[in-house]
Design a protein around this nucleic acid. Sequence first.
DNA 1: TTGAAAGCGCTAACAA
DNA 2: TTGTTAGCGCTTTCAA
Lengths: 370, 370
Amino acid sequence: MKHRSAPKSVTLRDIAAALGISRTTVSNAFNRPDQLSPELRDRVMAMAKAMNYPGPNPMGRMLRTGETGTIGLVFSESLSYAFSDPVAIAFLQGVASVCERAQASLLIVPTFMPGVVQASVGEAAQATIRQAAVDGFILYSQPFNNESIDQVMERKLPIVAVDCPYLKGVSSVKIDDRQAAYEAAAHLIRFQHQYIAILCTELGTDQYEGPVDRQRMEQADYANALERLRGYHDALQEAGFDLNQIPIEERLNREDHGFLATLHLLQQHPRPTGILAMTDRLAVGAIRAAETLGLHVPSDVSIVGFDDIPLASQVNPRLTTIRQPAVEKGRLAAELLLHYTGKTICHVLPTELVVRESTGPAPIINSETE
Amino acid sequence: MKHRSAPKSVTLRDIAAALGISRTTVSNAFNRPDQLSPELRDRVMAMAKAMNYPGPNPMGRMLRTGETGTIGLVFSESLSYAFSDPVAIAFLQGVASVCERAQASLLIVPTFMPGVVQASVGEAAQATIRQAAVDGFILYSQPFNNESIDQVMERKLPIVAVDCPYLKGVSSVKIDDRQAAYEAAAHLIRFQHQYIAILCTELGTDQYEGPVDRQRMEQADYANALERLRGYHDALQEAGFDLNQIPIEERLNREDHGFLATLHLLQQHPRPTGILAMTDRLAVGAIRAAETLGLHVPSDVSIVGFDDIPLASQVNPRLTTIRQPAVEKGRLAAELLLHYTGKTICHVLPTELVVRESTGPAPIINSETE
DNA sequence: TTGAAAGCGCTAACAA
DNA sequence: TTGTTAGCGCTTTCAA
């Protein structure tokens, strides 16, 4: 893309000169048609076309006005992942719909360098964030202590943080993950499930997959995941469960990973009769795993998801889950940024337990001794 | 977003002055750390931090260098729709993955003004496209003769067109929609279906929904849809069908619209035993409609989709469809733009008929006379 | 290793 | 209605 369409591109000045008028007038012809006579405007536009003028250079304009008409969006993790995650996409849809109405462009800023050592990831993020020509940033689902956040903060532009750890003086949009997860767990508990397992999304940025212990929880990077885990624990503890007996499997948020993790969980003794999946994607994998083992959902295993993605109601059996307003999150974040006042505003959006067919009463277990 | 963090923001010059050094050196401290002594660099960075300097202003830099490090992406239609369309999302994922690797940002340029009269839509697109600070554009799935294309062409920047009508001198990525659709129809014909109906996506930009006749086809705005329709017709005609007897229903590309259209089609006489759906979303709706009418897929009705979106293989029965490489389209388009040479390159990517369980032999019809 | 000078292309006050 | 003036903040030769 080093290409340059002409050796020396034509500018406002050139067309002004060609017409023997001032640059202002040409500028006005493009930006304020009402500021000059229609005939003159027509002449200007005709000359522009004749000279192959590509219109006022946006960089010049931005530098001059100090505004870009653009919102920057920073995801954690890789964009390939973000654009395969139904929740992130719903969020994006919300952001985009507001941008569209406001005629604002949306700049997706990559901060993740695929196949690069951890150390230089920061450098990469630094460069793209520093060079983003935007009027403000939306930060989506960032882990604790990561360089993208710092980098964005340094830009001293308006910021709205979505599903992020608390940032001083930054407006935010989120849900109460802990409370929502509590509801999910309480739902299973109400059905008398005695053996409950947890399917957990990534807690750290280290690509670890496997069981989660106390220590791992304490070192968690992702506030969301941790909060959901805590919500599950709150409910379980309250109901008298021994938390040490509750298996937790941490996996990448993908159906196939949920599938494998559940295969593993369902072969434990005692076999869980209830599974708390931290996302619907994991839950969908879990349903498939149960099927694969010849277990019926919900009569052998109950599964409850989280998010209420479209797939949740298309799968069979349809998934009991926690609905969170992902599109609305995006809309609100964009609106907050577009109408930025400098005031720090925190929105906590409501969630809702949606009961469908993937959960039911615990089966009667034969040997209570096991 | 009129907010300005400081009355007068601090610039390179300020920090140079404070340190009694030149602007060049400060610039180098940020952009070419190797061009100055580490101690000086540290001093510069410390002062920058102390003075709350947000880093070199991207607009200044862009204006100076003439490069933005950004790719512009222009969808037709509304972004809300684009981000709910699995095919567009897959495409976006492909684009994003390449951008990420190349450390390029991705600017989503809205060209659609929701709730605005047709006339001024052009104006809206004009403004956002003209003001996009990008090094090149990807044009996605544009209808014929629309203003966005003209506007983008006027920018005289590198362009890659994806699923667009032919544009002189513009590189493109596409599939052979006509041939692919031909395969889909041929598949049903091989199964001896006598009564075939077509579920068609929007041909025009006028929000029309209903039957499609010759005239509507001739006035089509969307090349894709038209090509697929032609492909179906090619196969049907070749097999001796009377095209006038083949019902075509044009609908928005959404499951619920496919559902309603199919409800309608399946209540015709003679009832179609095969349905050619121009997208998987329509096809999924069609499956539901058949179910709703108590018809079995595929023994009563065969349904073949197009696209092979993820849902196609998750639905029951799994959908027979045409696979198209949507992610690959995005990757290729981004790569073509990033490595732009000025040469016009056209890629036609392969498609493939994927036979699953939604199609089968035509049922035996009782009355041949009907 | 550092600095001076020049200007990227534009728009907004203000003046005519 | 049109023009003059004055930078916006930066980077990049080139010279010291």
